[in-house]
Amino acid sequence: MMDFKALLSSVRASEHANEYTAYVDETWLQGRTAFGGLSAALIVKAMLNQVPADRRLRSLSVMFVGPVPAGNHRIIIRELRVGGSVTHIQGEILCNGEVAATVSAAFGKDRPSAVTLTAPAIPSVAPPDTLESLPYIEGLTPTFTQYFDMRMCTGGLPFSQADSPDFSLWMRFKEAGELDLAALVALGDLPPMPGLNMIKHPGIGSSLSWYLEFPSEMPKADMSDWWFYDYRSQAAGNGYFNNYATVWGADGNAIMFSRQVATVFEK
């Protein structure tokens, strides 16, 4: 078993320009592929080696193309344009010579502005200490979930045939240590997607594409700190769900906005 920080530390520059290697441990799989948030985080970790520190992540677009199995993989980074304020950059993880996931990102400097709009406030919900942790059940829940603590606030659990796909929960890593940008990205893909809670077991849900926006600066936080995730479906049909979410820190500040197109296979 390897914790998340160990996996991020496996991202190392190779002898080829703009190329890195990364390792995925088998305990971080969901089925035959790595947890999607991990795949994206590994690519972001490589990107951060090539982006100036004064440019923070503004948006991130992920395409989940194919499975990322356990083992060693290559990450290829390509700078599309480095402007005076914004760096556009792409990355992809290759498994057995085939593209398995791609990330396109925009990193930008702060600009002077007279306009400030406050992000939505965190809803009034039960604190995490008053809620029960979702159990890790070997052979039933995805393997990677053993590394996280999730506590449902509202909505139905996966495969509960709930009336609504919408739900909310508190979430955090079980390990301690400084929370960096790559770890924050991984948290954004942690909860089960809306729609899984409307079908019966067995069923399968999978992200097709995923988009993140970061409205505020990366906070100083520990990996064991709590984050509140409000996850909703805007439309669904023909096996596809159009989902959106907001993630807040325990201090009430919105840190991520998410959009997702996901597929649900009912059996």
Rank of each mutant, 00 (worst) to 15 (best):
A183D: 10
A100Y: 03
F148V: 07
T145H: 00
S207T: 13
Y240F: 12
R151P: 13
D166E: 05
P219R: 01
R111C: 06
F107V: 06
K174M: 05
A126Q: 12
A221Y: 03
A119F: 01
D225P: 05
L212V: 01
M193S: 08
A105M: 04
A119H: 05
E175K: 10
A186R: 07
G203P: 06
A235E: 08
P112Y: 09
D222H: 10
S206K: 05
D149E: 15
D129H: 11
M198R: 09
L179N: 10
Y240R: 15
S124A: 14
R232A: 13
Y240N: 08
R111E: 14
M150L: 15
D110Y: 09
S209N: 13
S160M: 00
G139T: 03
G195S: 04
F173P: 00
L117G: 02
F159T: 05
S206P: 00
A162T: 09
D189K: 14
H201D: 08
K109I: 06
L134Q: 05
S124K: 12
S216Q: 14
G177M: 12
P192R: 00
M223R: 15
R111F: 02
D189M: 09
R232L: 05
L181Q: 15
G155A: 04
K220H: 09
A105R: 05
T130L: 07
A100V: 07
